[in-house]
Amino acid sequence: MSKLKFSHYFELFFWLMLVLVFFGYSFEFNKDIEIYKYGATLWPRTILLLIALAAIGQFFDQRKNGDKAASNTMAAAHEGPDSNPEHTGAAWYTSTFILLAIPFVYMTIPEKIAPLFSIEEEGLGNFKLICAAVLFIVYLGFAWRNHVGGILALPIFFAALLQDIGFYALAPVFIIGVMILMGERRATRMALVMPFIYGILLAFFVSLLYVGLPTGNIKPFYDFGNWVVTLLQ
């Protein structure tokens, strides 16, 4: 009797789609190499073939044995998503997907839509800040009900803003944000711990090791970043 579940079909679909997309793209670099007759495609195509075989093998094994398919010595060390039923299901995945998409919307959309509003180079920074604020409100709306999704998306959102706002202005907000998402609610503790973490990191990496962190490129964050660097070095 078949023991297949939706997740097994999804896994097979995911791997086979990956194989198809990467196999199709391999024709883009299917060029001859004079000293190597197999060219640049043999290695990736062999890996793709092995992925397809392993995915199909896994599917048939799951069909026969279900989730206990070919469990090896490390099986017991793994916890499946079933151990956290609150964080499975279509609604949770949809909300998490939207949260994860927010940083990528910020990285791609503002620069593309700016010309539609006749925004020139000088005004682009402020336009991006407005977009960031709107997206942050959307983020808060979803993260409020989906804490785990919020935790997954926050660091990517932080990284997406680094280029424009800079490490020095963003890090304090990020520290507080992570602490809140991790369940800390005591304002005094957060107010004491945040400058401690921020200060230690900057003292060690910026003052001692002269690591150049992104200062941002939108005023006033850019000025603030440069002021901190000058102060520390």
């Binding site: 890090a171 990020f174 991790m182 990191l201």
Partner: peptide, 17 residues
């Protein structure tokens, strides 16, 4: 909850550096 932001920021600095 205090260790997590520290590790995430350390990882950020290290990967950027």
């Amino acid at each position: 909850q205090f260790l997590a932001p520290m590790i995430l920021l350390l990882a950020t600095v290290c990967s950027y550096a």
